[in-house]
Design a protein around this nucleic acid. Structure first.
Lengths: 345, 345
DNA sequence: CTGTTAGCGCTTTCAC
DNA sequence: GTGAAAGCGCTAACAG
């Protein structure tokens, strides 16, 4: 806690009252120019900085927002946090960041702590595990402004900022088909969040629009709650796929983690990419071009999504008009084609 | 800002005074068991949660710490933040995270904001650019507890948690030598921080211990302040190296960014790894094994470093004994050998 | 234009 | 064992 000077110190030094100082510093019209100048000068000279606690207590707000993501240690989340930081810093809010580690219980703990900590609003990207949104609804009903980002759900009425997952998946799948792949496998997560179903639906729609029959044995929903489990699920899925009489010739992976782990496994298991098995997936890793072959990806505007979510929340907190018809915004993904989906020979 | 009930609400409901409630809730010995029970029960039932602002104002502390890293959007930093989060959550502190983006000016802005925000202590991993620590010293002299982590400097007297960079670099270089590589290039950052010089010195020491002459044309210090500049510097360095009459046969890269970008460039430029050019470097990316060939790395205990730094800071804040002789702690790195440094044919 | 006063919610002497 | 009162630093009526 800093021990800088207080309003009273300035008041005494300048032979004025604290309220005059307060008003002067807040550039109130009630105060004369001369006094303002004097006060400002003195404050600057003595490095006065208002006590955040006192101000917050008085005004009933903390100028801080809570942020809950699955994990700090996750490229994609980190990029969104970067965007959130941009927005909060711009508007001089503090972000208190917490992680759910994909656990619904931990997520509730986070909400508890944040709420108790006196946040003015909450930005949340729910854990994969989460299927009960009552706690969150409770906070909302208690008057806490809430914005969902990245991982959305219809279970709750709130402002939501995500991407067009259906379209991204549709494009990825269509790209594979256009490159000559027909036996396309799909790896996704086990979760109720729309992020999963939207991508799955996009995949299915692309297949059917190109008149390719859907083969359910090419489909697997993996456990996402734990790195090791995910890896195990993925490895099982891959070897099952490749042991089939008609193994897939391409694979579309639905999340950042699944995509990158999958590439690692394909290297480990020695599959030739893309000759034997092409791959494209949702991932924002900077290392797509460091892989060999370079990885084709569906890239999400993570930074913008975070920034926009934070800006929306701040507007909500400050009861400003939100100039969008729909409470749900879907940003566009971008397909980045590299060698892991080179045209089929 | 949450609007839960206050001490006074409880006091009125129970026909007691606020001070009694306060003491009861803080489990003071002055209060009778019966009253305590009654108060606790009522508080729990009505979801009482103490107002952080009021408490902070009264006690002159905020139970929050400031954290400054180069960037949120950086695998290595994210892993350290994960560790910091672990420690702060354990001790029920809040971490306010800010990013310097490698700029000294921004770093000072961050410190300003954090200090004004009333943090109880500061955790900082300085920007590469930073060479003037007077501002930080100023905060320290004003009584703010400060702990440096990851990127250390002798310019300031503080608790410091880093890794043994000299040893890590020494091991990486020795590994290359033992695998039969003799013409070893080194890519490092332009900075005054010991992170850079220690690694450089470790490299030099390994060469000289193995009686290999140091060739300064195999050495390059790259601009780290901007991704594009770094990439350009790296690309220039690589093509200069490979255009030499005697190009290097291996390369030791000193940081996370340099290592991963370098791999991407080597793929792009089409060098055969490790036949033409082996590579090992400091990096914590999860994708080392997703690369082809898999990347040998020097891995740093980022999570532990962050956790330990935060724990140290909290002890400092709470004036607890710190049970370590030396104010500087150096954790051990771990060499992870994969195919990018396969023995020279 | 400036000052007085009260109070945000909490802790903490100090009385009783 | 419990309560009254003061005060942390700030803002905002309300007076003057």
């Amino acid at each position: 806690m800093n021990h800088s000077i207080t309003l009273r110190d300035i008041a005494q030094a300048l032979n004025l009252s604290t309220s005059t100082i307060s008003k002067a510093l807040n550039d109130s019209h009630e105060i004369g120019e001369a006094t303002k100048k004097k006060v400002m000068a003195y404050a600057a000279q003595h490095h006065y900085v208002a006590n955040r606690m006192a101000k917050g207590l008085k005004q009933g707000k903390s100028r801080s927002i809570g942020v809950i993501v699955c994990s700090l240690d996750n490229t994609f989340a980190a990029q969104m946090l970067d965007g959130i930081d941009k927005a909060t810093t711009n508007k001089s809010y503090q972000a208190i960041i917490m992680q759910s580690k994909e656990s619904q219980r931990k997520e509730i703990d986070c909400m508890d702590l944040l709420y108790a900590g006196g946040i003015d609003g909450l930005l949340i990207s729910p854990a994969c595990e989460t299927n009960d949104f009552n706690y969150l609804k409770g906070l909302q009903e208690a008057g806490l402004p809430v914005v969902l980002f990245d991982r959305l759900t219809d279970e709750i009425d709130a402002y939501k900022i995500g991407v067009d997952n259906f379209k991204g998946a549709y494009e990825a799948t269509s790209h594979l088909i256009n490159r000559g792949y027909k036996k396309i496998a799909h790896l996704n997560t086990q979760t109720n969040l729309s992020i999963s179903t939207d991508r799955y639906n996009g995949f299915r729609q692309a297949l059917s629009d190109h008149e390719i029959d859907f083969d359910s044995s090419y489909l697997r929903f993996c456990d996402y709650t734990d790195k090791h489990k995910l890896n195990a699920d993925l490895e099982a899925a891959l070897s099952d796929f490749m042991a089939m009489p008609e193994p897939p010739d391409a694979i579309f992976t639905a999340t950042d983690q699944i995509t990158t782990r999958c590439v690692a496994l394909m290297n480990k298991l020695g599959y030739k990419v893309p000759q034997q098995l092409a791959i494209i997936g949702f991932t924002n890793t900077d290392l797509a071009d460091a892989m060999n072959p370079a990885l084709s990806t569906i890239h999400q505007p993570a930074f913008e999504m975070g920034k926009m979510a934070a800006e929306t929340l701040i507007k909500l907190i400050e009861r400003k008009n939100i100039d969008q018809e729909d409470k749900t915004v879907r940003l566009q993904t971008e397909i980045q084609i590299r060698s892991s989906t080179t045209a089929k020979p």
